[in-house]
């Protein structure tokens, strides 16, 4: 796990910090909104895991495609999705990304190659593999990336997808966010193997990094993306991280030791990044300025989302099928 690249340009690190701060601020606000009953349904937060999506997305191109999962707010925000439309969707409003049809687990933006969060564990993998197949056949030069948790490692379709990607040498990066928990159960009670050995079994290149070290993630992702983009086949990037919150907001986590939560909270990727920034000569005031600006940006998005009109059932059926088109043969 020694992928930390030193020296790492300070301005680039500050950029990564801004990205992580935005995800953190957005999710902390979602947590509060959910507690106040302003978000319907349920949400899964990635607090404590921000270094993974932000580090990986920092080395992607806008046209690269991305498949996400149920814990996908960070993936969407890091891919550059519009924060206003993101919050509008989470609050179930007409002007949200999915016009209130999807919610937290289905945020998508096809213009940015964000192929959607996903409510089904492991389902993003074959979607990313197929997207990579399209990139390859169409010769776009782009790659596909899929984020999944360690819980997905036990899904059959994950293995089918890894085998297919390696067999066809597809430009896809598999990013495993290994946070140690599969819903309410520790990973150790779910698997007899681990991502590195799985990748080895398929002959796939794999790397393991400290997923709470954004520099390490960005560095390893840069190498992996370069390999994938060069047409050398898929890669697996395992990012070891920690789940600070419950499986879903409101999860009392009775299955979890208090010490585990405390340890996860202490190992904070944002705090670690701040320390590095200070060491690099960035002032505390500069860091506070980032926090203030980010909070203001999220405030604005929340205000807009609260004020947004709810969707009307009237035009909902029209989204089930595409508009009719003359078929030419």
């Amino acid at each position: 796990m020694s992928h930390t690249l030193a020296p790492f340009a300070t301005d680039r690190l500050l950029e990564l910090y801004r990205g992580m701060r935005l995800v953190r601020e957005a999710e902390e606000r979602l947590s509060a909104l959910f507690a106040e009953g302003e978000i319907p349904g349920f949400i899964h937060l990635s607090i404590g895991q921000e270094a993974v999506p932000v580090g990986v997305a920092s080395v992607l191109d806008e046209a690269d495609t991305l498949a996400s999962n149920h814990r996908g707010h960070g993936h969407a925000i890091a891919k550059g999705l519009d924060l206003d439309r993101f919050f509008l969707e989470l609050l179930g409003k007409q002007d949200g990304y999915c016009r209130g049809r999807g919610g937290s687990m289905h945020v998508a933006d096809m213009k940015l190659g964000m192929l959607g969060a996903n409510g089904i564990v492991g389902a993003g993998l074959p979607i990313a593999v197929g997207s990579a197949l399209a990139h390859k056949i169409r010769g776009t030069g782009h790659i596909a990336v899929v984020f999944f948790g360690d819980g997905a490692l036990a899904e059959g379709v994950l293995h089918e997808s890894m085998n297919l990607a390696q067999l066809w040498s597809l430009p896809v990066l598999f990013v495993c966010e290994n946070n140690g928990w599969s819903e309410f159960t520790e990973g150790a009670r779910q698997l007899t193997t681990d991502p590195q050995r799985m990748a080895a079994a398929y002959g796939m290149k794999a790397t393991k990094v400290d997923g709470n070290d954004v520099i390490a993630v960005a560095g390893a992702a840069r190498e992996a993306v370069a390999t994938v983009r060069a047409g050398k086949g898929p890669c697996l990037l395992e990012c070891v991280t920690r789940r600070v919150r419950g499986h879903f907001e409101g999860d009392p986590q009775k299955y979890r030791d208090a010490g585990d939560v405390a340890a996860a909270t202490r190992d904070d990727p944002l705090a670690r990044c701040e320390s590095q920034l200070i060491a690099d000569g960035i002032s505390q005031a500069d860091i506070e300025a980032v926090k203030t600006a980010t909070a203001a940006r999220v405030d604005a998005a929340v205000a807009k989302a609260r004020a947004g009109p709810p969707p009307s059932p009237a035009d909902t059926l029209a989204d089930v099928y595409s508009p009719p088109r003359e078929v030419a043969t």
Binding site: L125, G130, A144, E160, S161, L167, W168
Partner: peptide, 27 residues
Amino acid sequence: ERVRDTPISEAAIVGASVGAAMTGLRP
């Protein structure tokens, strides 16, 4: 490139077709 034998992986080949269709192909 366009006519492909797949492994016996029905879930992955239909799932991959969804991703391919989202990325400009008609599988």
